[in-house]
C-alpha cells in the first residue's frame, strides 16, 4: 500500500510538470502549426538564468518571476526572429512541397535547441548543478507516521493548479484568449474579423515559453540542472500531448497526468531503466489505438 501511495503522489506531482510541458507544446501547435522541439531548451536556458540570479543572492521568488518573464520573452523572440520569417518564406517557390512545409519548422526548432544548449554550456560551463526548492524536499510527517508525499510535491501541485486555473480563465474569460482560440480554429476568418493573427501567434509562443519555463523551475530541484537535463521532459511532454490529442488544451493536461502515473508506477513497480521503453510503447499504443488522442477531434488533426 505504501509503495502504491509513493507512486501515486510522485505521479501526481511529476504529472503536473508534464502537463505544463505538454500544454506548452499544444499551445504552439494550435497557434502556429509547429511542434516546438526547442521548447525545453528554452526552459533550460531560463532556469539557468534563475540559477545565476540565485547565485548572485537574489531571492528565490524574484528569480522565479524573472525566469517566467524571460521564458515569455524567449518564446516571443523565437517566433518573431525565426518562425515568422520562415512561415512567410513558406509561400515562396522555395518550399512548394506539402510535406516540407511541416518539416522545415521542425528542423528550425532543432537548430534553436542546439544553439541554446551550446550557449548554456558556454555561459554556465555546462556541468550539472543543483537548483533550490522554496520548500523542503523531505517527506512530510503527520504525527508519528511518514507520509509518502514531500512538501515540495505539494508546492508543485499547488503552483501548477494555479497556473492551470489562470490559463483556463484567460482562454474562457478574456478577449485575447478568445482571439487565440478563434485563430487556432480558423485563422482566415479570424483575420477577417479584425484580429491581428500575427500578434496572437506570438502570444501563444510567449505563453508556451512561460509554461515550459515554469516546468523547468519545478523539475530541476529533483533532477539538477545541465544543458541536457530537460531533454527527457520534452520527450515525455510530446508523448503526453499526443496521448491527449495534439489539438486539445484540456487533453494535453490530462495526457501529462496520465504520463506522470505511467512513469511513476513503472519506476516503483518495475525498474527506472524501463522508463524509456515504457514511454515508447505507450506512445506507439496511443498512435495505433487512438491517433486523434483522448480529447482531440478527428477533423482538426493535421496529419
Amino acid at each position: 500500500m505504501n509503495s502504491f501511495l509513493t507512486a501515486f503522489f510522485a505521479g501526481t506531482s511529476q504529472g503536473a510538470i508534464y502537463a505544463l510541458v505538454s500544454l506548452g507544446l499544444v499551445l504552439v501547435w494550435r497557434g502556429a502549426g509547429v511542434v516546438n522541439f526547442a521548447q525545453m531548451g528554452q526552459a533550460m536556458f531560463t532556469t539557468y538564468i534563475a540559477s545565476q540570479l540565485i547565485q548572485n543572492e537574489y531571492s528565490y521568488w524574484s528569480a522565479f518571476v524573472i525566469a517566467l518573464i524571460s521564458g515569455a520573452l524567449l518564446g516571443a523572440l523565437v517566433d518573431l526572429g525565426i518562425m515568422r520569417p520562415l512561415s512567410s518564406r513558406k509561400n515562396s517557390q522555395l518550399l512548394n512541397s506539402q510535406s516540407m512545409r511541416t518539416t522545415v519548422p521542425v528542423i528550425a526548432s532543432l537548430g534553436i535547441l542546439g544553439v541554446l544548449k551550446a550557449l548554456a554550456g558556454i555561459f554556465w560551463a555546462g556541468e550539472e548543478r543543483g537548483f533550490p526548492a522554496p520548500v523542503p524536499t523531505t517527506g512530510l510527517r503527520l504525527g508519528n507516521s511518514d507520509l509518502a508525499i514531500t512538501g515540495f510535491d505539494l508546492f508543485v501541485i499547488g503552483v501548477v493548479f494555479l497556473a492551470l486555473v489562470l490559463t483556463t480563465i484567460f482562454f474562457t474569460r478574456t478577449g485575447m484568449g478568445l482571439a487565440m482560440r478563434a485563430s487556432a480554429l480558423n485563422p482566415e476568418v479570424t483575420r477577417l474579423s479584425g484580429i491581428r493573427v500575427g500578434s496572437v501567434r506570438t502570444l501563444s509562443w510567449a505563453i508556451s515559453g512561460t509554461a515550459s519555463s515554469l516546468a523547468g523551475l519545478l523539475v530541476t530541484p529533483k533532477t539538477n540542472l545541465s544543458p541536457n537535463t530537460l531533454d527527457l521532459l520534452l520527450i515525455i511532454g510530446f508523448t503526453a500531448a499526443v496521448v491527449g490529442g495534439l489539438t486539445s488544451l484540456a487533453g494535453s493536461v490530462l495526457g501529462g497526468f496520465i504520463l506522470g502515473y505511467v512513469i511513476a508506477f513503472v519506476n516503483v513497480y518495475s525498474a527506472p531503466e524501463n522508463v524509456f521503453l515504457a514511454i515508447l510503447i505507450f506512445l506507439l499504443l496511443a498512435l495505433f489505438l487512438r491517433p486523434q488522442g483522448i480529447l482531440g477531434s478527428k477533423e482538426v488533426r493535421r496529419v
Partner: peptide, 9 residues
C-alpha cells in the same frame, strides 16, 4: 500513418 511532427516526435 504518421506525418510531419508526429513522425519527428
Amino acid at each position: 500513418r504518421l506525418s510531419g511532427p508526429y513522425l519527428a516526435g
